[in-house]
Design a protein around this nucleic acid. Structure first.
Length: 455
DNA sequence: TCTGGGGTCCTAGGACCC
DNA sequence: TCTGGGGTCCTAGGACCC
């Protein structure tokens, strides 16, 4: 909670649909729905013309079609959205170094770090109005709704008050009178489940929430959430605008038009997804220790299974093998509508660490691995202990097993390879599965079974 | 043929360590 | 062969956000 209205929240109006209307004049003034167009798709964004018919984000596309059959249904062009988003974020960063993007179409801007003569309401209002114009210019016609207030919470609430193409500045000191009549769902983090819990306790508005003491709120919704609600209900929010946030996980998932029942097909799909995840890790110079699969059954029951490695990986083959191993424990006989693979526990990891230091491989002293000292560390992975430290199986193929050693400096130390039949190496190496090319573990062949295209 | 995809954060229980 | 508490890591699930 600041003394001045110096947090700005900007939200591009009906972003995906607006980009489509900008790029295709025949769509202007007409209902446009962007989202999944398959049998199980949902709406990402509806243009304001489509919202008139009750089409909303997250609604199934099937329902959107029945409400507005004459709308244009588009599956989306993410490169175009990314480009437009980039133009906006660059503009915002030119105005203040402290910009926190929330998604492609939303960001906070810290005006304390902008070049303004002062932070009084008239000054900030004029600045925000000019900024909206510059956003429209930079995106060749997209409009933005902007809110400005003394905190992130207030700025975000404000940007919602005059959509689309509006600006609301909440003067310092007026926050509580603004919030009190509002429904509790204006508070970020209050979704359907919390609304229902609060409703049962007779709490509907922010004013009512404000009258509940901290202990009672914690009892109702838990420790962290309760404390958050207690403060936000009083407009107390000092969360800073944070420019750089590091990714914590990378994942790929897909929902299929018809439920999957063939385990071999599921394995093939997981293998493909693992390759996408690992590829994205490598692209960003990341690796991760925990591999998680997600399985949604025919009845929408959602399961997850995860396993954690001794050291991070970005290998397609390793992620794929672990994913398939995790699937093996699950009963999928009723059919599966969604499969996904993710990697978390991310670490910065530069390619040179692994491949650029061949000399490190040469420097390693001879190693004897006593049979009895080995133990299984994780499904599909073996770990070996030696006098020189601990190593783990990194990859295998062509009769060679590659072991990566942990050192005092780094859990991802030098790499050394062994012949598969080396008596020193007692680690069990899982055989390659169909669809995985043992010649090149980073480039698995297409699965033998051709999977259906995920929507 | 209700219910996406890519994320973040929290909780709770168990293992393990000191 | 009794009893503990705190801290951390891991796993599974759930709520929430855009």
């Amino acid at each position: 909670m600041r003394a001045h209205a110096s947090v700005l929240h900007l939200d591009l109006d009906a972003f995906f649909a607006a980009v489509e209307q900008r790029d295709k004049p025949s769509l202007r003034g007409k209902p446009v729905v962007v989202g999944g167009v398959g049998g199980r798709g949902v709406v990402s964004t509806a243009s304001y013309e489509a919202r008139v018919y009750g089409v909303r984000s997250a609604m199934s596309t099937r329902e959107a079609r029945s409400r507005c059959p004459h709308a244009a249904f588009l599956s989306g062009r993410f490169h175009a959205y990314r480009d437009a988003s980039h133009a906006v974020m660059s503009l915002l960063r030119s105005v203040s170094p402290l910009v926190e993007p929330l998604s492609l179409d939303e960001a906070f801007v810290d005006l304390e770090r902008a070049d303004l003569p002062d932070l009084e309401v008239p000054t900030v209002t004029a600045f925000a109005e000019e900024l909206r114009g510059r956003v429209t210019e930079a995106t060749r016609g997209l409009t933005a709704s902007v809110g400005v207030g003394t905190s992130k919470f207030i700025a975000k609430v404000a940007s919602d008050l005059d959509k689309p193409d509006g600006l609301v500045v909440v003067p310092p000191g007026t926050e509580q009178e603004l919030l009190r009549p509002m429904h509790v769902s204006v508070i970020p983090g209050v979704g359907p489940a919390t609304v229902e819990r609060l409703r049962r306790a007779g709490i509907h508005t922010v004013a009512e929430l404000e009258s509940v003491d901290l202990d009672e709120l914690v009892r109702l919704v838990g420790k962290a959430h309760g404390s958050g609600l207690f403060h936000l209900a009083r407009a107390l929010d000092d969360r800073p605008v944070v420019a750089e946030r590091e990714a914590k996980s990378v994942s790929v998932e897909g929902t299929y038009d018809t439920d999957l029942t063939d385990r071999r097909l599921m394995e093939a799909l997981l293998t493909r997804q693992a390759g996408e995840v690992a590829g994205r890790l490598r692209k960003h110079g990341l690796s991760g220790r925990t591999v998680t699969i997600k399985v949604r059954l025919h009845d929408f029951t959602t399961l997850s299974r995860s396993t954690t490695l001794a050291s991070p990986t970005d290998s397609s083959a390793t992620v794929a093998r672990l994913a398939r191993t995790l699937l093996a424990d699950l009963d999928t006989s009723g059919g599966v509508r969604l499969l996904g693979v993710g990697v978390s526990g991310l670490a910065d990891w530069v390619q040179e660490d692994l491949f650029g230091e061949a000399e490190a491989e040469e420097e390693l002293p001879a190693i004897e691995i006593p049979h009895h000292s080995r133990r299984t560390w994780a499904p599909g992975m073996d770990v070996v202990h030696t006098d020189h430290g601990r190593g783990w199986v990194w990859g295998s193929g062509r009769g060679v097993v590659t072991v990566r050693f942990e050192t005092a400096e780094s859990p991802a130390g030098p790499v050394r390879s062994f012949a598969e039949d080396d008596p020193a190496l007692s680690a069990w190496v899982p055989p390659p599965l169909p669809g995985e090319d043992p010649e090149d573990p980073e480039d698995p062949e297409e699965p033998l079974v051709e999977p259906p295209t995920p929507e």
